[in-house]
Design a protein around this nucleic acid. Structure first.
Lengths: 109, 109
DNA sequence: TATCGATATGTCGCAATGCCACATATGAAA
DNA sequence: TTTCATATGTGGCATTGCGACATATCGATA
């Protein structure tokens, strides 16, 4: 998988994964890997900074959860802002894929 | 359109556009804009360096063409290497879109 | 008991790549 | 003669994912 392809789409990926419920970083990384059946991998090291950025921009809200018998986790959930951003990014992604298709297929025909 | 989405996919776009015939930089930029109906724009300033890189990597072969009544143009055509790279990038792109779909839709369901 | 792997979060420097501003040059149209 | 479309080019900047490394806990296994 071309590394560069991921640029920019990761945000949509993360926002999508916390749409229905709060998740923590490690969980998000594992979900990306398993649901894409290995096609998409994502270094956790890249993920944490992204989560901070999303929180700083007010799209996510994080909260520490400590339970006996496990390391502390930081759960992130979508804010109202984040939900709006998710909608926007969903349609931007769809438009982008469609445009790519139009250009590459026009040539292929 | 999110700027970051383009990262990495531009190469596929350019390779696709010279698949059937040689084209020059300005023409490629215009084609991207018109065929995507404005959804994808691409600064020519970003395009030229990309073309040099593709040529340096042996995927494209450039050739100056001078005709009276127009500025000199550099036409790029696919090399054999480039054709191989195009096939690879086409399947990588398809896999990527498919993986994105699986992850974002699984959540949406 | 010692060690190793999975879980969980974090920092730092690096590389890749598109953006923007700016520059140069020609031909056609206003 | 000024302006626009064509055509190529350079340099600095910002964003963002990678890789190496660090820390820490728990359960399994040797």
């Amino acid at each position: 998988m071309d590394r560069q392809l991921k640029k920019g789409s990761t945000e949509l990926l993360v926002l999508s994964l916390v749409e229905r419920r709060a998740r923590h970083g490690y969980e998000i990384a594992k979900l990306i890997e398993s649901r894409s059946e290995g096609a998409l991998r994502f270094h956790v090291a890249s993920l944490y900074p992204l989560l901070y950025r999303l929180e700083a921009r007010g799209l996510l809200e994080g909260r520490w959860v400590e339970r006996p018998g496990q390391r502390r986790r930081r759960y992130y959930k979508l804010t109202t802002e984040g939900r709006k951003a998710l909608r926007l990014q969903q349609s931007a992604w769809a438009a982008f894929v469609e445009a790519m298709h139009r250009i590459t297929q026009a040539e292929h025909a």
